[in-house]
Amino acid sequence: MSDAILSLKNVATDIAQYHILHDVSFDVPRGKVTMLLGRNGAGKTTTLRTVMGLWAARAGQVMFNGEDIAAQPPARIARKGLAIVPEDMGIFGDLTVQENMALAAVSGPIAADRLELIFTAFPPLKTFWDMPAGNLSGGQKQMLAVARAMAEDRQLYLIDEPSKGLAPAIVSTLVWAMKSLKGAGASILMVEQNFAMARALGDYAAVMDDGRIVWTGTMDELANDTALQENLMGLSMEVA
């Protein structure tokens, strides 16, 4: 993992008086999908939010393309080529689908071929283009959340549980969209509880427990070692 687009070095994050992340260190290789796994409350979402600057790191470095972005505001981090798809989807319900998409393209209008790709992947977005996003169904909101991240080229996507609560057909569409992002050369750091999806997409994995990284390696290593899975997460990937 020599060519890392993102490296966390001894990162510690507090939320109010609680110490959530302790000495978190791992790399996200360029052009690969890294799955961030672990039990609920292990600190996965906090890690993504710390990278994006939404929670300030108390200590440590967040190196993006060799630059420490730990103390920078989220807007500046976003403009460096990072996009976050939060667990709660992070869409703007008062705005139309079109406005949501336009906002996501911070550097200018969305290219026509990219929009075509988004409509091919997520047809409901074209159907409800002028509808307030708040009126979309849960699955459609998740499509919009992912589509927003795809609105323009990003170097690194931070995606938090994209399949949560979605029907299998929609999950398949999301997997296809993630693969197309990966095929375009983007790097992805994804939190996912759906092990089938994690296995289908992941190249590498980092496992967290109690705010610490407890294991890193390839996804194949983890997927093929049931004992390791149970030891690390108390779950087996074979369940999916």
């Binding site: 807007a75 976003a78 906002l103 996501a104």
Partner: peptide, 10 residues
């Protein structure tokens, strides 16, 4: 919070 995360300085 979300607008900031998208890339807009609130």
């Amino acid at each position: 919070f979300r607008a900031e995360a998208v890339g807009y300085r609130v």
